[in-house]
């Protein structure tokens, strides 16, 4: 059975996903995948994600593991012969998927969400409480389990002076920062929603 080409998804990506329109330039050389440290873990190599977008395969793209696996090493971006910021596209797709509720707030999506919340709340990251918050997202029991698994590491960090004792305080300009971030959210690609 032949899959139908449907340009509407590509348009959706161009209009709503950060750096999404850059994929137009892809000439399918494949150097992005070849350069990716997690290439063997991805269900679709990046250039294939781009092909799927052009073909209109929304589900395959938005549910792919690949768009959630970026380690942000930038190798694909520095090597892409067409200057496509592959990493930014992958981030953009992941963000879009999370925003649209297609990607469940688990794993990286959840962690990143908590990360951002903390920035929005206090302007900085508290390395001590962030993993805790993330773990608890999985539910109370597994959360505590994960936290206990992480505990020896935390204790080691603590013993070697690498953990702040006091909780991180809000930056002074947090109110203004929040206003800015609200504005940025609104002005960003695809709008606030």
């Amino acid at each position: 059975m032949a899959g139908n080409y449907d340009p509407s998804f590509a348009k959706e990506v161009f209009d709503n996903v950060d750096s999404g329109e850059e994929i137009k330039m892809c000439m399918q050389c494949g150097i992005c995948a070849g350069s990716c440290p997690l290439r063997h873990e991805m269900d679709y190599p990046p250039r294939q994600i781009f092909t799927l977008i052009r073909a209109g395969r929304r589900d395959e793209v938005m549910n792919s593991k690949a768009i959630k696996l970026c380690t942000s090493c930038y190798r694909c971006k520095v090597r892409c012969p067409r200057g496509i910021p592959v990493i930014d596209v992958m981030h953009g797709l992941a963000h879009y998927g999370i925003k649209k509720g297609i990607i469940p707030r688990k794993g990286t999506a959840a962690f990143g969400g908590e990360f951002w919340k903390m920035i929005y709340n206090i302007g900085r990251i508290d390395e001590k409480t962030l993993p805790l918050k993330y773990n608890l997202l999985e539910g109370l029991v597994p959360g505590i389990k994960s936290t206990i698994e992480m505990a020896p590491m935390g204790i080691q960090m603590f013993l070697h002076h690498r953990m702040k004792l006091l909780p991180e305080r809000k930056i002074k300009g947090i109110k203004e920062l929040r206003k800015m971030l609200d504005k940025a959210k609104e002005m960003g690609k695809g709008g606030a929603n």
Partner: peptide
């Protein structure tokens, strides 16, 4: 009064512009 850079992972919670 610097703020966090957002690191590599913020994209899960925010758009590029943020």
């Amino acid at each position: 009064d610097w703020n966090c850079c957002g690191a590599s992972i913020s994209y899960a919670g925010a758009n590029e512009l943020s």
